[in-house]
């Protein structure tokens, strides 16, 4: 039961916490009118000014992007000169001796993101499935709105809630339980302190879950009804329809949503800073406190008292920017390919 010969749905890579409507009827035949038909009417210089001004601002966005990379690179030069490539391989972080390396924050960023994805991706696909296919009609709209609201809550509120509410629960119940049942794994050894890598991953997962879930639901809803009904008519169970029709049909959009969620998790600051523990120390244990690039910046930026310290922090920022740039860039390319592959009128 393959559905790949149908036009692929393309999710619109949406803004922060909402979603764009798919472009409706953006016809291409009439696009040239801006240059030709209007020349005869009115004052041409007015239109030239209008066009030039809007163009300047559009280019302004590109310039802003370039300026960000250039400024971060330029200001991290003292660290680049001092440490060179070894910045990326050194686990040192010693403000007293001015010796810095990116390994611990980078590992923290990647590990907390990986944990968050591990938890959030299956859950959000489950939520999306429920919203698109299983929920009774009357429940779909309010439930969908509730999940979208979860995505609108500012990240600092997640972080604070994680620190005051979730961390004690983790310390008193979840971590002791994990330690007593899975304590033979190095991952679950150590003192149950509540804050640490595991809690950071969990809070991050909660933050990106609604985002991935609502985009995935939109993708599921785009699957044509007759495709699903044909499958049901052949006696397929709901799970078979999902596995063989809906997921293949929406694969592109779902993968894109996961990547966008990941890009967001990598750079998330406030939700992580509260609960990650802020310690420079690598450990196999997920209970141990750690640090991410974003939390390092949030905690230490205003305290940096030497040029190299500040430059190292800025270089960390540059590393983070490039990391998210790669993930988000790939996601956008992937989604664009989805559009080019089929759906264009």
């Amino acid at each position: 039961m393959r559905a790949t010969h149908h036009p692929k749905p393309a999710i619109a890579p949406g803004p922060a916490r909402g979603k764009y409507s798919p472009t409706v009827g953006a016809g291409s035949q009439t696009d040239d009118m801006s240059t030709s038909t209007r020349q005869s009417a009115g004052k041409p210089w007015g239109d030239a000014v209008f066009r030039g001004a809007t163009l300047a601002f559009a280019i302004g966005i590109l310039a802003l992007f370039a300026a960000m990379i250039a400024a971060l690179w330029h200001e991290s030069l003292p660290a680049l000169h001092k440490f060179g490539f070894s910045f990326l391989t050194s686990a040192a972080w010693n403000p007293v001796k001015d010796d810095f390396g990116a390994v611990i924050p980078m590992v923290g960023t990647l590990l907390s993101t990986a944990l968050a994805m591990l938890i959030a991706v299956p859950l959000s696909i489950g939520v999306a499935l429920f919203l698109a296919e299983l929920a009774p009609e009357w429940l779909k709209a309010p439930f969908g709105t509730a999940i979208e609201l979860l995505a609108a809550i500012p990240s600092i509120v997640y972080g604070m809630w994680g620190l005051f509410v979730l961390a004690p629960v983790m310390a008193d119940h979840v971590q002791p339980w994990l330690a007593s049942h899975f304590g033979f794994l190095p991952l679950f050894k150590g003192a149950p302190m509540g804050i640490g890598m595991l809690t950071a991953g969990l809070v991050l997962a909660l933050m990106i879950l609604p985002f991935i879930a609502s985009v995935t639901r939109d993708v599921f809803l785009m699957v044509p009804k007759n495709l699903k009904e044909a499958a049901y008519g052949m006696g397929a169970t709901t799970w078979e329809v999902v596995r063989d029709v809906m997921i293949p049909y929406g694969k592109k959009g779902i993968v894109g949503a996961i990547f966008l969620g990941m890009g967001r998790a990598l750079g998330e600051t406030m939700a992580v800073t509260f609960v990650i523990g802020n310690a420079y120390h690598l450990s196999w244990s997920l209970f141990a406190p750690g640090n991410s690039i974003a939390s390092t910046l949030a905690n230490e930026f205003t305290e940096a008292d030497s040029d190299v310290y500040l430059a190292s922090l800025i270089e960390l920022g540059l590393v983070l920017f490039l990391m998210t740039f790669i993930v988000l860039g790939l996601a956008q390319l992937w989604l664009k390919r989805g559009v080019a592959g089929g759906g264009k009128p």
Binding site: P13, G14, P15, A16, A26, S28, D31, S34, R51, T54, L55, A58, I59, I61, L62, L64, F65, A67, M68, A71, L72, L260, G263, R264, L266, G267, E268, T269, A294, L297, A298, F301, L313, I314, G317, L320, F321, T324, F325, L328, G329, Q332, K336
Partner: peptide, 29 residues
């Protein structure tokens, strides 16, 4: 003006990345 143009594609592409770029890096900038 930029619907089908190369420049339009680029502006769109980088805007979409900026939308989800880490806000703390904007602070550093």
């Amino acid at each position: 003006f930029g619907r089908e143009s190369r420049l339009g594609e680029m502006v769109r592409y980088f805007s979409d990345i900026l939308v989800s770029a880490p806000s703390i890096v904007v602070g550093v900038f």
